[in-house]
């Protein structure tokens, strides 16, 4: 792990995001999430749809800003910054989104898309070497500048569009890259290409990355640490290395047990029972369960879980869980 504890690149404390849902109700999308990403580290955020992982990603770049909580990028506190300074600070953090085709303006050409950030922040300063720098950026992400430079997004494949998005983000030399499901709309073979590209890029540039996805093995592959979310809360934070053996939160175990056998490889998870797979409806984020939000699906749930919300506790260095009952595993292979 490359964590250097003294200078986190990105810190978020007690983020809360709520959306109005009509009739006076509120969607509790994110309820008190804290995270920290060290310089050069990749934090994976894992969870199913509706768990608030994408909302966390968006509130990190203040689009929209969280309803409560603070976000610090290096030494700048983003929350509460004046709009002009916020725009400048935000450019130090870039986002890669799930649908690469929709993330590119359909009416612009690739060269202008890649140059977009530069044209916002450095008008006139180095437009003369625009072509050379755009070509270099495209080559960096594995695209052939001569063939794609003058195309429009709909003339490219999904994988190529995602490469253009990455090139565009890197053009601004960001410190932190936020990837929101960057490979889930891509084919398996293309997914591997993009994961490899992100891996080598972050390593070469010592970029910090927040990698949001629903696929356990994808997240494990690219992250140093993994944060598991369920219904707007953090369940478990643990190092990704060996997570298939070390994870103890019942929800994490359920996610691991849901993986198809081929993705488990030789790592068939053993240990605490996975949550019982009931065909029950998921609880609504409009009215989340009291206490522990996972208790309605949890095999370990007791009365205490309904009454008292489990506080995050550290069960070993770098491994925190929010569960009353789960215990660290003693003897694993």
């Amino acid at each position: 792990m490359t964590t250097t504890r003294d200078a986190p690149a990105l810190t978020a404390t007690d983020l809360v995001v709520e959306f109005p849902a009509g009739r006076g109700q509120k969607v509790h999308a994110v309820s008190g999430v804290s995270l920290e990403v060290a310089a050069g580290e990749t934090l994976g955020i894992l969870g199913e749809s509706g768990c608030g992982k994408s909302t966390v990603g968006r509130s990190l770049i203040q689009l929209p800003p969280p309803d409560a909580g603070t976000v610090r990028l290096g030494d700048v506190t983003l929350t509460g910054l004046a709009p002009r300074e916020l725009r400048r600070a935000r450019a130090r953090m870039q986002i890669i989104m799930q649908d690469p085709v929709s993330a590119l303006n359909p009416r612009r050409r690739v060269k202008d898309l890649v140059w977009e950030g530069r044209s916002i922040w450095g008008p006139g300063d180095d437009t003369r070497d625009k072509d050379a720098r755009v070509d270099a950026a495209l080559r960096d992400v594995g695209l052939d500048p001569a063939t794609v430079r003058d195309r429009r997004p709909h003339e490219l494949s999904g994988g190529q569009c995602q490469r253009v998005c990455i090139a565009r983000a890197l053009m601004l030399d960001p410190e932190v890259l936020i990837c929101d499901e960057p490979v889930s709309s891509l084919d398996v073979s293309v997914q591997a290409q993009i994961l490899n590209l992100l891996e080598t890029t972050t390593r070469r540039r010592a970029l910090s990355m927040v990698f949001i996805a629903h696929d356990v093995s994808v997240v494990k592959n690219i992250s140093d640490r993994v944060m598991v979310m369920y219904l707007g809360k953090v369940c478990e934070v643990l190092p990704s290395d060996g997570m298939q053996h070390e994870a103890v939160h019942p929800y994490t175990r359920l996610l691991l047990a849901s993986l198809p056998e081929a993705q488990l490889g030789s790592a068939a998870p053993a240990g605490p029972p996975a949550a019982e797979e009931r065909a029950a409806e998921l609880p609504s984020p409009l009215n989340p369960p009291s206490g522990c939000r996972f208790r309605t699906r949890c095999p370990l749930a007791t009365e205490r879980c309904a009454a008292e919300e489990p506080a995050p506790r550290e069960i070993r260095p770098g491994h925190r869980i929010a569960c009353h009952h789960a215990e660290p595993r003693r003897n694993h292979p």
Binding site: R88, M93, I95, M97, A103, N105, R108, C165, R168
Partner: peptide, 26 residues
């Protein structure tokens, strides 16, 4: 609400730029 507008804002584009350069052509 399309993602390219979010991407432009993440790069620091202001309102005028988003209205004129991102939205107007569409």
């Amino acid at each position: 609400n399309r993602e390219f507008v979010v991407a432009a804002r993440a790069m620091g584009a202001g309102r005028t730029r988003i209205l004129l350069r991102e939205l107007l052509p569409n």
